[in-house]
Nucleic acid binder design. Structure first.
Length: 511
RNA sequence: CGGGCCGUAGUUCAGCUUGGUAGAACGCUUGCAUGGGGUGCAAGAGGUCGUGAGUUCGAAUCUCGCCGGCCCGACCA
């Protein structure tokens, strides 16, 4: 039997969903747990999350926010306070109804733990924290001088999903949720847009994922929000994924939680609130955006290791000297600064077959692999392998040159990944004018085993919620966003209603 | 919550139709060889066959209940 030509089978074009799962497994990022829908995030995946977390947290701090932590359990009654919100999350809430277990001996000698101590009021495990944070805000806000209140929390949340997929949709996931309260609507809207921009920048610059910033239509809006802003990315099967959202909540939640303050005119007023979040779904988005048929490809800025040094030790007697050279190189590299941080370098000293070790780091997506063996030491050179090139590509370069150029090289890889993702998106974004065109665009040629097809369709739209929901049901296509850029603003007529339209919206199949 | 399928080694699965007490591949351990490449050979560890009952001299295999999971629909950061 011949070796597969790629590390991942099936390849992307053969079976994209299966490919995705195999990449997660091959890169050792996460696995399914015994609890359906819940994942174990393994060190390589969690290291990635830690970098995302640290870099985003810096941006939150720069924009004036502080971190706090609120309870996992939310009184059921809190969720009843905002009708639209309650309805939006009702079908995916885990409910805690008991607070103790009682050991009961069974006839067969085993012991069963039986829940007892039923709670007078059940708790909901937070699907999001607007309500409980709102209750805290109501206590904390008394005067306009207490505003704005700019809080973020890093936490886990639970939404009882029927179709879990590692990172993309799990019952429990990690995220950050920002919650702010403001004196005026303008200020709150400004905050909503600011954080939307922070997300757009982060996706683009740190994760090398181009996004279309825009606003959600009524049908896709966060339950209880007046406006929801989103960053939409296209991944390699040309579907859209919502990578981050920022909500202008108006006074809806302030009224529900009674967040009132005494204003400048000695007038009692309700605060204006916002909320915004990104989740571990970002990791799934990165996988689908960047990974290839040999496994993960990590943007250097968030890679847990940016450089892995692989000692080549063909002879036992030169082994110690090679390892020492590798360690020395690692120390030198770690002293380099790039994107505001020291380089993250790992020396893989494990005594396993060289090829297996090399492939492991390819599959994990490390941006740069450096091989260093006796011959390189003699010639004062290193062998450089870039993850964004083929698995066999290898450059022998003088060590001094490599040390001089290494940060430029990482930047080049980072930029190249963004360019590549951008090109894919542009190639599959089209202006369409009629329903027929749209249906053709989103219909696979092979119905039995659909190939990768479709993309983003930019279309004139003047329909309402009902028309949109009908389209979504009939054609499995939704409006991802009403995009913000000038390039989308043009006169036209809605392809469905024939009404005039000033702007094209983005239609796509989505995750 | 409706329709289809499946529970056997760490993983993926074979064995079940035609009952006779457990197999493969990968992974793991050890040794030898190999050494700019996911290597070869050898030895080894690992399973009360989801669970309870029934039929039988005998059940992974047949029957029934229960539990768990997967896929397709309604819902989704």
């Amino acid at each position: 039997m011949s070796q597969p030509s790629t590390a991942i089978t099936p390849r992307r074009e053969e079976d994209f969903p299966e490919w995705y799962q195999q990449v997660v497994r091959a890169a050792d990022m996460a696995e399914n747990s015994e609890v359906r829908g819940c994942m174990v995030i393994k060190p390589w995946g969690y290291g990635l999350w830690e970098n995302i977390q640290r870099q985003l947290d810096e941006k939150f701090k720069e924009t004036g926010h502080v971190n706090a932590y609120f309870p996992l359990l939310i009184p059921l009654s809190y969720l009843e306070k905002e009708a639209e919100h309650a309805e939006g999350f009702a079908t995916e809430c885990a409910v805690v109804t008991h607070h103790r277990l009682e050991a009961q001996k069974q006839e067969d000698g085993t012991t069963r733990m039986v829940p007892t101590g039923e709670l007078a009021e059940p708790f909901v495990i937070r699907p999001t924290s607007e309500t409980i944070i709102g209750a805290a805000f109501a206590r904390w806000v008394e005067s306009y001088r207490d505003l704005p209140l700019l809080i973020n929390q890093w936490a886990n949340v639970m939404r009882w999903e029927m179709r879990p997929r590692l990172f993309l949709r799990t019952a429990e996931f990690l995220w950050q949720e920002g919650h702010t309260a403001h004196e005026t609507a303008e200020e709150a809207m400004q905050e909503t847009r600011l954080m939307h921009q922070v997300y757009a920048d982060f996706l683009t610059q740190h994760l090398a994922i181009p996004v279309i910033p825009g606003e959600k239509t009524e049908a896709e809006r966060f339950p209880g929000a007046l406006n929801t802003f989103t960053v939409e990315a296209m991944v390699q099967d040309r579907k859209a994924i919502q990578a981050g959202t920022s909500h202008f909540l108006g006074q809806n939640f302030a009224k529900a939680a009674n967040i009132q303050f005494l204003g400048r005119e000695n007038q009692r007023e309700f605060a204006w609130t916002t909320s915004w979040g990104v989740s571990t779904r970002l990791i799934g988005t990165m996988i689908m955006a960047h990974a290839d048929d040999d496994g993960m490809v990590l943007p250097p800025r968030v890679a847990p290791h940016q450089i892995v040094i692989l000692p080549v030790t063909p002879k036992a007697e030169t082994r110690d000297a090679v390892i020492e050279s590798c360690e020395a190189l690692a120390r030198t590299l770690r002293a380099h600064n790039w994107a505001g941080q020291g380089l993250r370098v790992h020396v893989d000293k494990r005594d396993i077959a060289g090829g297996a070790r090399n492939w492991e780091w390819i599959k994990k997506g490390v941006p740069l692999r450096i091989e260093l063996g006796p011959r390189d030491i003699e010639k004062r050179s290193v062998a450089v392998c870039r993850r964004d090139q083929g698995p066999k590509a290898k450059d022998f370069v003088p060590k001094e040159d490599f040390l001089r150029d290494v940060t430029d090289l990482l930047q080049e890889i980072q930029d190249g990944m963004l360019t590549r993702a951008q090109a894919l998106r542009d190639e599959h974004t089209h202006r369409l004018e009629t329903l027929e065109e749209m249906v053709a665009f989103f219909t696979p040629k092979n119905g039995d085993k659909p190939e990768i097809h479709g993309g983003f369709a930019l279309m004139h739209w003047a329909g309402g919620r009902e028309e949109e929901e009908r389209l979504s049901k009939e054609h499995k296509v939704t409006i991802r966003c009403i995009p913000m850029g000038d390039e989308y603003a043009e006169e036209g007529t809605c392809f469905l209603t024939g009404k005039p339209s000033q702007r094209r919206v983005v239609f796509a199949k989505s995750y």
